[in-house]
């Protein structure tokens, strides 16, 4: 198997085991660790986690496919997730999406050719007071305007 948890993650897993009544509780934490480590959750990782928490891989797989934040396929370096739910829609989500699509040359659900960006529309991000809002990887970007999109994308270009 090609997936191996990093030493640091293995230590975290051991520490977490003492925190819960059953190792099965570590399923979501382990999936997160695997996703951060590899960028996505591979089938190999699922097998390995199954051994760590003593759960058959299928039981893990069906859990992993239930939660929308787990990527079972690789995604772009920057995963842009634009909130599409009501408050954001009322505050101009459509223009933000248009701006993102234009700048990146991709539609929601697609990744840029260089694999750098993946664009998704997601349901309510719980940031309705600062709509429209998007998340790039773990960070929130709030009170978006088309101009702000330009600035954000430019800073990402510089970053890489």
């Amino acid at each position: 198997m090609s997936f191996v948890f990093s030493k640091e993650n293995l230590e975290r897993i051991e520490a977490l085991k003492s925190r819960y009544p059953s190792p099965k509780a570590l399923l979501l934490p382990c999936l997160w660790m695997a996703q951060y480590q590899e960028g996505y959750i591979s089938l190999d990782a699922i097998e390995v986690i199954g051994e760590v928490i003593d759960m058959p891989p299928m039981e893990l797989y069906r859990v992993a496919t239930f939660y929308t934040m787990f990527n079972l396929e690789p995604v772009g370096k920057y995963h842009i997730q634009l909130c599409k739910t009501l408050s954001c829609a009322l505050r101009g989500k459509a223009q933000i999406l248009a701006q993102l699509s234009n700048r990146l040359g991709i539609k929601p659900g697609e990744s840029s050719q260089d694999g750098k960006y993946t664009l998704s529309q997601v349901e309510c991000l719980g940031s309705c007071g600062t709509a429209p809002v998007m998340q790039i990887n773990d960070r929130y970007y709030e009170n978006l305007t088309p101009e702000k999109i330009d600035t954000i994308l430019e800073s990402l270009e510089e970053e890489s």
């Binding site: 099965k24 979501l28 759960m55 069906r62 859990v63 239930f66 939660y67 929308t68 309510c124």
Partner: peptide, 28 residues
């Protein structure tokens, strides 16, 4: 002792029994 348990994108896990299922390593 306090431990933070991170969800992974499922509205239904706000329902308390689904949340507990999720914390037990199951579908919500």
């Amino acid at each position: 002792d306090i431990t933070i348990h991170r969800g992974a994108g499922a509205y239904i896990c706000g329902e308390k029994s689904a949340l507990l299922e999720s914390m037990e390593g199951k579908r919500g």
